[in-house]
């Protein structure tokens, strides 16, 4: 479970990025996080995997509190989360298998375990035949599938996706979204930041909209002040 309690985040130079946000994401939920650029979506996501800590308030993720977590606690938390970005963030000189296995390598998993797990997730994301390819040999959609495979290989309880379809064409977007739905159907929570209103309209998932660092709409709480249809 992920819970934000009266969370604000401000930076000395750019001012307030997130202001007084309280939010809860339950196990197995699919949540769209939307809003204009600079609305605070990415900052909110970064606070989930604790790359950023709130200036005030508390973020609690699977029992880890942003107030008390040490660096090792954050590292352990991230092993329970999957994180996906718009720009894929794959290592260019490593094959797709090695990129996916990298997430297991760095947490000290034995080689005997890595091979099996990598093969399983590559099959899950539809890249079983592309394991030996280098990222540059794949299309954008395939690269994002590889990034999702890397995020999934540790069996995370939640997948944090920051604009995962932002660099993709419509067809690849549909493919990636379908993949995320399937992952969610297996019980993994998904929090996906997106600008794609069409995608949001076509799917009946919880939608949280942000503007100027605040939550202005949450379909799970229609009574929220300022609520409007996104």
């Amino acid at each position: 479970m992920i819970r934000f309690t009266r969370v604000s985040k401000s930076y000395p130079k750019t001012g307030t990025a997130v202001h007084d946000v309280s939010l809860q994401v339950n196990k197995g939920e699919f949540v769209f996080l939307t809003g204009a650029s600079g609305a605070g979506k990415s900052t909110l996501l970064k606070m989930i995997y604790m790359e950023e800590r709130p200036t005030t308030g508390e973020v609690r993720v699977a029992g880890t509190s942003s107030v008390t977590a040490k660096a090792t606690d954050v590292a352990k938390l991230r092993r329970k989360l999957g994180i996906v970005f718009q720009d894929f963030r794959l290592l260019e000189h490593r094959t797709i298998e090695q990129n996916v296995g990298f997430a297991l390598e760095v947490i000290g998993a034995p080689d005997s375990v890595i091979g099996g797990k990598v093969a399983r997730v590559l099959t899950q994301v539809g890249l079983a035949a592309k394991g030996r390819a280098l990222p540059r040999e794949l299309s954008g959609g395939e690269q994002q599938r590889a990034a999702i495979a890397r995020a999934l290989v540790n069996d995370p309880f939640a997948l944090i996706a920051d604009e995962p379809t932002g660099n993709l064409d419509d067809r690849a977007t549909r493919g990636i979204f379908q993949l995320l739905r399937e992952i969610n159907a297996q019980g993994t929570s998904i929090i996906m930041a997106t600008h794609n209103l069409e995608l949001i309209r076509r799917n009946e998932f919880r939608t949280v909209e942000m503007a100027r660092g605040q939550v202005v709409f949450d379909s799970a709480e229609p009574s929220l002040p300022g609520t409007r249809t996104p």
């Binding site: 995997y49 660096a71 090792t72 590292a75 352990k76 938390l77 991230r78 092993r79 994180i83 963030r89 290592l91 990298f102 997430a103 760095v106 947490i107 000290g108 890397r150 540790n154």
Partner: peptide
Amino acid sequence: SKEISIMRLVGATDSYI
């Protein structure tokens, strides 16, 4: 540096890095 940032994202400890 890219590799290091990915290592951190997937839960590598600083001592491992």
